[in-house]
Simulated assay, not measured.
Amino acid sequence: MKIVIIGYSGSGKSTLAKHLAGYYKIPVLFLDKVNFLPNWVERDRHDGRLIVNEFMKNDSWVIDGNYKDFYQSERLEQADKIIFMNFPRRVCIYRAFKRYFKYKNTTREDMASGCVEKIDLEFMWWILYKGRTKEKQNHYKEIEEDFKNKIVVLRNKKEVDLFLGDYLIEV
């Protein structure tokens, strides 16, 4: 089984990825962990692509994150299920603050070593605006259209809970 989880920052992609990987006992790759080196330094794109390419050779996996440069088209094609976390801005910003206070002065397991949890104006602007430009929204719409037979769009926690209840029984 191959599962791709995409969506907006703060929507719960990593949490869902951990849950599904644990349930199915399959490896998980957090693309934020691939993209960043310690202290929020961006990894060389070529090196990141090598990591993702190698991981995708597994028979089963969960991959959490957007990152077009990291074989997004191939990930979407190979996936048995695509989950789009399409939560509203207000929920994502609330969750980002909640996450910050939970992990303040530490590094989450889904982040690169040395990337201490932070919330700053740049990240808030990303959640509220830059990560939701018309171009990005249209890209998600294209994914929904191109992969309508295997995409699930989740818009709130209730839908996630219902999906997990149905999906984990169904598969």
Results as ranks from 00 to 15, higher is better:
N66L: 03
N66P: 05
N66S: 04
N66I: 02
Y67R: 07
D69I: 07
D69Y: 10
F70G: 03
F70N: 07
F70Q: 03
Y71L: 15
Y71A: 10
Y71F: 14
Q72L: 15
Q72T: 01
Q72C: 02
Q72P: 00
E74C: 01
E74N: 03
R75N: 09
R75D: 04
R75Q: 07
L76E: 07
L76V: 10
L76K: 07
E77A: 10
E77W: 03
D80W: 04
D80Q: 12
K81V: 15
K81H: 05
K81W: 03
K81E: 06
K81S: 01
I82Y: 04
I82W: 06
I82E: 03
I83A: 06
I83Q: 05
I83E: 03
F84N: 08
F84W: 12
F84K: 06
F84G: 01
F84P: 00
M85C: 08
M85R: 05
F87E: 01
F87M: 15
P88T: 11
R89T: 15
R89Q: 06
R89I: 14
R90W: 13
R90F: 12
V91Q: 06
C92M: 09
C92W: 04
I93S: 13
I93D: 05
I93F: 13
Y94Q: 06
Y94F: 15
Y94D: 07
R95D: 02
R95E: 10
A96E: 04
K98H: 08
K98Q: 13
R99W: 10
R99D: 04
Y100L: 09
Y100W: 09
F101I: 14
F101A: 09
K102N: 12
K102R: 15
Y103N: 14
K104N: 08
T106I: 09
T107L: 08
T107C: 15
R108P: 06
R108Q: 13
R108A: 09
E109W: 04
E109A: 13
E109S: 15
E109F: 10
D110H: 08
D110R: 06
D110A: 09
M111A: 02
A112D: 01
